[in-house]
Design a protein around this nucleic acid. Structure first.
Lengths: 222, 222
DNA sequence: GCGATATAACCTTTCGGTAATTTACCGCTT
DNA sequence: AAGCGGTAAATTACCGAAAGGTTATATCGC
């Protein structure tokens, strides 16, 4: 056995039993299903270790498959990373959109941050590491990857822009750089909380939501 | 020429002129001076790209020497990284200590965060990337490096502990986990601001300090 | 010449990526 | 019902480049 191709499935489900709903002339796991599995494993590995430190063999091993499968479904390591970016960005933006539109009543300006946080915690509960795929500082400076990550972060920042600008202009501050910096601090705060949650896996989404409510009020009325 | 040993100095100072204050029987640059140069270059490279993506050859090339020099002064890549951790942690802790002890008058609780930020901006003005050596998320989970980084971050957190705990208990909140999370958010905020400053190299330390003052008041009286 | 500084050239491992081959399921024909 | 070929899914075994690390050698000031 090649040492770069990790051994038999440590994680895969179908060792003896066989398929149910595949297309004509097929064995193994159907394409769409495998694609999801690979994407989930890649999000975990890339989020945990960063692009450079994550290895294709490790991702394959997590799925219970060998490397060539990854290249059959996604063209390259960078291609897989791009797919991860798209996936997590879509998920994050959907969560924020939903939180801002607010189910029954749209949250007012003051409690909007808490609604967004709760939405993100809910959406990423089982994928906490994936958040950091968007915020990997180790991507090569000129690379397509970094540009793509920047683009997606920009889309997310756009949703935060109205909130931060409103907060500042409420204090007579119209400096666009101030608003930009505050956006950056806000997404950084989300990163901090996600990182802290990873270090405390036993805490539920509800616990995190309540905790953030306490922290936000404490900070605001300092 | 070996492609892994980068060519002649793209950055080093002494092409023609020779030394002045070296020890007995020496050519080139004296040991202590080279050590500083290497450390500075390593802080920059590690901070920019992370541990995994930074290469020893690139660090050597930045100094204007070849790889074996790095191994002569520091034993290994990890050894060099550990030295970087010590260096930047010492610098950061000194800056925070000084800001908290406050020159003429110790800053009150409310403006302490701003004093700390200003101290950090001043201390890291010419080494902005170095901050991220302490906060590299891509370090291997079980490694000595990650433990060392955690240890140093813990020392820094210790300085923030009194402030965050005081803020929360002022609101009747004595939950130790809340205090821990708030510490994490605080250091994350510093990271965010340092990252934003890197993206805006033209801004002075004073500008950043004033900007943060504005942001802090805006946040607090939301 | 002696010792400190420095380098060229090399070794080894890891990892992204690929070509050739195999396995197993399906439907169609006999 | 038995067999047969087609096709999707998957694996084994390999290549080449990049990077960490080492050895043996050269240079320069005292």
């Amino acid at each position: 056995m090649d040492s770069t191709s990790t051994g038999t499935a440590p994680n895969a489900s179908p060792p003896p039993g066989r398929r149910r709903g595949g297309a004509a002339g097929t064995k193994g796991v159907p394409r769409a299903e495998r694609e999801e599995q690979i994407l989930a494993a890649a999000l975990e590995e890339f989020g945990r270790h960063g692009h450079a430190s994550a290895s294709m063999a490790a991702i394959a091993g997590r799925v219970g498959v060998t490397k060539p499968m990854l290249y059959a479904y996604f063209d390259s390591k960078d291609g897989l990373y791009l797919a991860c970016l798209e996936h997590i960005a879509t998920r994050v933006i959907a969560a924020i959109d939903e939180a801002m539109a607010g189910g029954p009543a749209a949250p007012a300006g003051e409690q909007l941050p808490h609604a967004v946080l709760t939405g993100l915690f809910t959406a990423l509960e089982d994928r906490r590491h994936a958040w950091f795929v968007l915020y990997d500082r180790t991507l090569a400076p000129g690379s397509e990857l970094r540009l793509a990550a920047q683009r997606h972060r920009g889309a997310i920042d756009g949703l935060a822009a109205s909130g931060t600008a409103a907060l500042l202009s409420g204090h007579g501050n119209e400096d666009p750089l101030d608003a930009d910096a505050l956006k950056h601090v806000w997404t950084g705060t989300v990163s901090s909380l996600m990182g802290w949650w990873i270090a405390h896996p036993e805490l539920s989404t509800e616990d995190m939501s309540a905790r953030c409510a306490r922290l936000l009020t404490a900070i605001r009325t300092a």
